[in-house]
């Protein structure tokens, strides 16, 4: 009978539902969202592409650094584990708090510098 009172009390409580697109819940400081890539710090070592468990990072030729390549992030494949951020020796990759990535077109989910 513990339920009868509890349920009745909820009639006068504010619903806990958040009307998502209009109001948002706070996100944790450490949230792992979309990448931010600082091209000036990248040396093109390729560690991120080698470590990425989801193969979401591909190296493309570039003249921005000595190794001649920079990473491209496929956000549709990314599992947001944060391994690239952790492995990068020059702190050129950072995961931001941005998470609204849904898109009808996969091509818009390719992220690279510049």
């Amino acid at each position: 009978m513990a339920m009868i009172r509890e349920v009745f009390k909820h009639l006068f409580k504010r619903p806990v539902t958040v009307k998502y697109p209009f109001e948002k819940t706070p996100i944790a400081e450490r949230y792992r969202g979309k990448h931010e890539f600082y091209v000036d710090r990248c040396v093109g070592c390729g560690l991120c592409a080698r470590e990425c468990p989801a193969l979401a990072i591909e190296l493309v030729p570039s003249d921005k650094n000595v190794n001649g390549r920079i990473p491209v992030f496929y956000l549709d494949k990314c599992i947001f584990c944060g391994q690239c951020e952790r492995i990068c020796p020059r702190a050129a990759i950072r995961l931001t708090k941005f998470y609204e990535l849904a898109s009808p077109d996969r091509k818009t989910l390719v992220y690279s510098a510049g």
């Binding site: 349920v7 009745f8 909820h10 009639l11 409580k13 619903p15 806990v16 539902t17 009307k19």
Partner: peptide
């Protein structure tokens, strides 16, 4: 609506 309110929903 009432069922939702009893369950703390909208």
């Amino acid at each position: 609506k009432a069922y939702a309110r009893f369950q703390n929903r909208i």
